[in-house]
Design a protein around this nucleic acid. Structure first.
Length: 298
DNA sequence: ATGACGTCCTGCCTGC
DNA sequence: TGCAGGCAGGACGTCA
């Protein structure tokens, strides 16, 4: 489940590894991943493009290309961007194709190779592949201005790790929200990039119950919460994300935050502060993990 | 404005 | 052992 730290890890990898490369071809076996333009046009308009830089906005990966083109990739829950080499083989008599990993070693052993549905061939022989078990991921290509002005980017809230994301700004946003704080933290139009994993750990750190109405939080609590958001996300970025389920970096390696998780997917384990068993409940259809003793509903 | 639920998907887990 | 059914879940759409 890539959230801000995982997407940042991928974007950093892209900037380190494939800037300056030219896209020489495209392969896909699930055209629905490509939202715009339609798949055939997508291929035509991206071949020949040079990769200039990668950026992250919320959980969106923005790959800036030559000739004012921009490629947006959202990994949703099970999407992975991998860099390596693969071979496409036809399977038996049907038209089914199989993606066979060749190198590097980490990618060869990555269990998510079998879900690769989109490959960009690069001019140095390597490839950028999008694997996605659940096929929820999306790719959109278009003129930079058009993509940058898509509602899903324009409508996003502030970036929590941006120096301009001040406590004042945070308090103003939260004050307007009557919804439960857990839902508010996960709403990308309120604050960008926080998902289920980090909202749970952030709330535990701030000792705030996930069901507390956002606008009922006291100023002191809000300040602790604001600090927790930045502290947890910074730590997770440094550790290259969390791989509780399936996140991998562009080499297929797991993230280091997995072992530092405070409550996420630790139901029935002892709270690191007080030893109470971590509980799980549903908030807006999503699971929330918390310590019933440290995080009081009141 | 808010909540509740449906949509897209499929590997994995549970229970019989 | 095998099979059916349910679950997870980001963002968006729909309906009350």
């Amino acid at each position: 489940m890539p959230e801000l730290p995982e997407v940042q890890t991928v974007v950093d990898d892209l900037n380190k590894k494939i800037v300056g490369r030219k896209i020489t071809d495209v392969w896909f076996d699930w055209p629905k991943l490509i939202k715009k333009p339609r798949a055939a046009v997508f291929r035509k308009s991206i071949v020949g493009a040079k990769i200039l830089k990668a950026k992250r906005r919320a959980k969106n990966i923005l790959i800036y290309l030559s000739d004012d083109r921009l490629l947006l990739i959202h990994q949703k829950m099970t999407g992975h961007l991998l860099i390596g080499k693969w071979e496409i083989k036809r399977q038996g008599t049907g038209d089914k194709e199989q993606v066979i990993p060749l190198e590097p070693k980490a990618v060869v052993t990555d269990p998510y190779n079998r879900f690769i549905h989109l490959i960009f061939y690069l001019d140095d022989g390597r490839m950028l592949a999008l694997s996605d078990l659940r096929k929820f991921a999306k790719a959109i290509l278009g003129p930079t201005k058009v993509i940058e002005n898509l509602p899903e980017l324009i409508g996003l809230g502030p970036e929590p790790l941006d120096p301009q994301f001040t406590f004042i700004q945070f308090a103003e946003i939260i004050h307007k929200e009557k919804r439960k704080i857990k839902q508010v933290l996960m709403d990308p139009t309120v604050i960008a990039g926080i998902g289920n994993i980090y909202s749970d750990d952030i709330l535990w750190t701030a000792k705030i119950h996930p069901l507390r109405p956002a606008n009922k939080l006291k100023p002191a609590e809000l300040e602790v919460l604001w600090k927790a958001i930045r502290q947890i996300l910074q730590k997770a970025v440094k550790l290259r994300g969390t791989s509780t389920s399936d996140f991998r970096d562009t080499e297929g390696k797991e993230g280091g935050y997995t072992d530092y998780r405070l409550v996420y997917q630790r139901e029935d384990e002892p709270c690191a502060r007080c030893g109470t068993k971590i509980k799980r409940l549903k908030v807006g259809g999503r699971s929330a993990h918390f310590c019933p003793k440290c995080q009081k509903l009141r």
